[in-house]
């Protein structure tokens, strides 16, 4: 079999695909963070924990109620969204007039609570979740084998991200949303129920995280710690991309996933730090982020 830079092409492409899979999680999560930040001015530290909760809900649904993968893909994000709406109504809404830092601190506390609860229930070792039958096996593309489930993860996250982009940028609802982000008082004066939109935005943002969690369930081990490790990388992705543009978050997420995959091939020791190193470089060269606007 042929080689690229002395590395078998099969292994090379495999790592690239894995990078893209991770990248689609980065994209989905950073998109949710950006949407929430735009509307609520809060950095949602609980995002990783809610992503974990999505995966956990899928696992619990399967093992306690016999709910299969497809229904989980619908129900778990809904459940996470409802939890999000509860969080927004009961706690976050009291913080909007305060310094942004309090939102970060509150959601950090929520992340600790969620993580601790699930760790108490299920321990830290991973729980298995088998790949749905439809996606067992792999496509033979001639130069590589592409596991069907990985292809599905990338496709599904891309679709969801693009749909979100479409709704926000191209529809009437999205126009209201952007107006409320720009100037909540004025939008409210035009008769649009801004608090309701804020609530639904948070619910939708965390539902995206829950959706990513269900997608991740068969692809990696489900563990209470899966979210906190991911969210810090996603923060770096957000700093690199800036939260100004939706397409920017998607591109940055996927791109960094790819770079991480490449690093795993050529210099595996740095694969867990490469995103942070890129962040440092971006801060030196373009502090506002690749797609960000200086405020």
């Amino acid at each position: 079999m042929s080689e690229i830079f002395g590395i078998p092409i099969q292994a090379f492409m495999g790592q690239l695909m894995l990078g893209l899979v991770n990248g689609s999680f980065y994209a989905t999560l950073s998109l949710g963070l950006a949407v929430i930040f735009g509307m609520l001015n809060i950095i949602n530290f609980a995002h990783g924990a809610l992503y974990m909760a999505g995966a956990m809900l899928a696992w619990m649904g399967l093992n306690y109620f016999g709910i299969g993968y497809w229904w989980s893909l619908l129900l778990a994000p809904l459940g996470v969204g409802v939890v999000g709406i509860f969080i927004e109504r009961s706690m976050l809404q009291w913080l909007y007039r305060l310094d942004h830092l309090y939102g970060l601190l509150l959601t950090f506390g929520l992340a600790l609570i969620l993580e601790g609860l699930f760790r108490d229930l299920y321990g830290v070792s991973g729980l298995p979740y088998s790949i749905p039958e439809e996606f067992a096996g792999a496509y033979n593309l001639g130069f590589m084998f592409l596991p069907k489930y990985r292809a599905w993860v990338i496709l599904a996250s891309l679709l969801v991200c693009l749909a979100t982009w479409f709704v926000i940028e191209k529809t009437r609802l999205g126009a209201y949303l952007r107006a409320a982000t720009e100037n909540p008082q004025l939008t409210q004066a035009f008769g649009i129920n801004v608090p309701l939109m804020v609530m639904l935005t948070y619910g939708f943002g965390v539902a995206l995280a829950g959706f990513a969690g269900v997608l991740a369930a068969p692809a990696m081990q489900i563990s209470p710690l899966m979210g906190s490790n991911l969210i810090i990388v996603v923060f770096a992705v957000v700093v690199i991309g800036g939260m100004g543009s939706i397409l920017g978050s998607i591109v940055t997420g996927l791109g960094l996933g790819l770079i991480e995959g490449l690093t795993k091939v050529f210099y595996p020791e740095a694969s867990s730090t490469v995103v942070f190193i890129i962040m440092a470089i971006v801060l030196l060269v373009r502090p506002a982020g690749l797609f960000g606007r200086e405020k």
Binding site: L105, L106, F108, G109, L110, A111, L112, I113, L114, E115, G116, L117, R119, D120
Partner: peptide, 8 residues
Amino acid sequence: TVIMGVIF
């Protein structure tokens, strides 16, 4: 951890 989170 949960208690710490609640205090937060």
